[in-house]
């Protein structure tokens, strides 16, 4: 009986657990395949990028959000809409640089690390580096070159998880040859 009753509420949670478990299995595999953590980070970032360039389409199609006028608006959309849709969390946007070209996303909970504990011999591993790749790839598809990296990680004993985004430049749209 209880199995039935629990179904509805459990269902939602399970889908995020499916994701974090799959991600965990992937990281484990990468750690086996590569000798050092830097390479694992790089590979995760690359895979994230591939996801980002595709997920942006899914995102734009379902969120009905138009072009952002400035980086602050972009930050808001990322934190309040994108993270909410895909990971079910809303990070806080803080630490703006004076020039307004850099900000941090503060995550109190990181759904990717649900069941994770980092062993001591992987101190250079940035477990969630796929997120950086996703953000970079997605923003690149809307003509923004952005540098994304982790500056704090709760897995490494920091109080929260902080992702730093730095706006590099606007990517010029390529006009197809023969058109104005």
């Amino acid at each position: 009986m209880s199995r039935q009753a629990n179904r509805a509420t459990e269902n939602k949670k399970i889908s995020s657990e499916l994701f974090s478990l799959t991600y965990g299995a992937l990281v484990t595999q990468l750690c086996k395949d590569y000798e050092n953590d830097e390479d694992v980070n790089k590979q995760l970032d690359k895979m994230g990028y591939n996801i980002g360039v595709r997920i942006i389409e899914d995102f734009l199609a379902r969120s009905n959000i138009g072009r952002c006028n400035d980086f602050r608006e972009t930050a808001d959309v990322i934190a309040k809409t994108a993270f909410k849709i895909y990971l079910g969390v809303t990070p806080t946007v803080t630490n703006w640089s004076p020039a307004g070209d850099e900000f941090s996303l503060l995550l109190e909970t990181n759904p990717l690390v649900d069941f994770v504990e980092l062993p001591d011999n992987h101190s250079n591993l940035v477990y969630s580096s796929m997120l950086c790749g996703v953000l970079r790839g997605a923003l690149e598809m809307v003509q923004m070159a952005v540098d994304v990296r982790f500056v704090q990680d709760s897995l490494k004993g920091d109080g929260s998880t902080e992702i730093r985004l730095k706006f590099l430049k606007r990517i010029e749209e390529n006009i197809p040859a023969g058109e104005e």
Partner: peptide, 9 residues
């Protein structure tokens, strides 16, 4: 959380 798309990707 809403998203299967993420898992698919």
């Amino acid at each position: 959380m809403g998203d299967e798309a993420l898992f698919e990707f």
